[in-house]
Design a protein around this nucleic acid. Structure first.
Length: 297
DNA sequence: AATGCGGGGTC
DNA sequence: GACCCAGCATT
């Protein structure tokens, strides 16, 4: 034990965490019942910035319709975009399909576990790459999603929110907690603790197995800094709102620009061509004729 | 380092 | 209304 150790007693913390997790963990989540990299990738991409409860029905339906990388690689973009309806961030649907095509075509159907190859898959960033390696193969890596980042920030660094601390110390602190064996359950336990107990608002410190050694609690649970945010814009006034409306309209079939303009609030109509051009460049819509648009076949 | 990207839920 | 959510890609 060195004086500079970020975590004074990682084994003790892990033991308390594991006992809590055995009783309180979300062990029944469907993507925790399977080790198939395809199924886990589907879950992780769907879960990017999207709550667990909302993902559940989409995950089941997606795996039933496209059960393998091969099946998804052969799917039409229009079909995956339509199946994504309601999940948000539609580009994720295309990324998932593109990742499937990469696995099938670039890697011959064998999943690329090398970090470089993993991170090269569309839609796979640092979080998802670590999640795949820990959850599918139990590799001893630190998974750093918003839940685990918050738990580690509070427990080790003593700050209320990971949005207020630099990434490098946070990642180092998370890595220092990872056990040499059993990283899958360790990361899942931290994730569940963040989702169920050490929540962003109103954390239940009374029910937290890490509370006795928590640096944030020792500091008196200081509240987060009031963030100096730029003036809020109504969601209905954003391009994201208009883009979402446009893609959703095309899910039910082709439309011409007059009809597309009609479904937008007046304030957005002057920018219709701009929205369509951007969506087309991203592969989310396709022009099928003079002023006629559809989802890409 | 900042910004865009959806949509729904909560307080 | 502000904040949050199993982030990623781009600039």
């Amino acid at each position: 034990m060195t004086a500079t150790s970020a975590t004074p007693d990682a084994p003790a913390a892990r033991e308390a965490l594991a006992a809590w997790y055995a009783v309180n963990g979300r062990h029944d989540l469907p993507w925790r019942q399977i080790r198939d990299p395809y199924a886990v990738l589907v879950s992780e991409v769907m879960l990017q910035q999207t709550q667990v409860e909302r993902v559940l029905p989409y995950y089941r339906a997606w795996l039933e319709r496209w059960p393998t990388f091969d099946a998804l690689a052969a799917a039409a973009p229009a079909d995956v975009i339509t199946a994504w309806r309601g999940l948000g961030y539609n580009r994720r649907a295309l990324a998932l399909r593109a990742a499937a095509r990469a696995v099938v075509e670039r890697h011959g159907g064998s999943f690329p576990w090398e970090p470089q190859e993993l991170l090269a898959l569309p839609g796979v960033g640092p979080y998802t790459a670590a999640a795949l390696r820990a959850f599918v193969r139990d590799e001893p890596v630190a998974v750093l999603d918003t839940n685990i980042a918050r738990v580690v920030t509070r427990f080790v660094l003593g700050a209320p929110s990971h949005r207020e601390v630099p990434a490098a110390p946070l990642h180092a602190a998370a890595a220092a907690l990872v056990p040499p064996a059993g990283a899958r359950d360790h990361n899942l336990a931290l994730m569940d603790l963040g989702a169920l107990v050490c929540t962003a608002r109103n954390p239940d410190c009374g029910g937290c197995p890490l509370a006795p050694a928590c640096a944030w609690r020792a500091a008196g649970c200081p509240p987060p800094e009031a963030s100096a945010r730029r003036p809020a814009v109504r969601f209905e006034a954003t391009a994201r709102f208009a883009r979402g409306r446009l893609v959703d309209r095309l899910r039910s079939g082709p439309a011409d620009e007059a009809e597309l303009a009609a479904i937008l609030p007046e304030s957005h109509r002057p920018r219709l061509a701009e929205y369509l051009a951007a969506l087309e460049a991203e592969g989310l819509v396709a022009q099928i004729g003079a002023g006629a648009w559809a989802l890409p076949a």
